[in-house]
Amino acid sequence: MDTQRSPHTKVFIQRDFSEGIPVKFQTRYPPELEGRVDRATYESTINTINEMFAEAESTGSRTYCESCFACLTAYLALMCMDTFYEKTLKKVRRYLEEQNQRIYMSRGVMIIDPAERGLRILEIDISSIDTPQR
């Protein structure tokens, strides 16, 4: 329970609505990360997440087929299968877990899965102690 004593800074990355409702996070580099994570690493992470969401939100042949199939079964099929979007959410979660393990945790930074915050924001926790938390 020592972590309770260590003060955390939380950075909230807001959604970027410039292209409409689809989920997209702002790619601006938060100054709080200065000295911990370099700009290129951070931006590549954010861009990867954004690409994953863009794919899920796009109306490609995959979503068309899925929706038509669900419609033909009177949407009963949706009860027993994961939609493409849900698979994407799992993919984002796995990706962020991997990134946290590989890069961010050792630098005292943790990116919280945006699904935990309702896809409204991307929360980044920065620990003020420099020791890795692993």
Binding site: E57, T59, T63, E66, A70, C71, F84, G118
Partner: peptide
Amino acid sequence: FSKGSLLKNCLGVLCGPNPPSLLD
């Protein structure tokens, strides 16, 4: 938010992605 044509809008509503519930 309009996608340009009537057909595209209809398809977008009827066959677009299924956003998941955010509530858990």
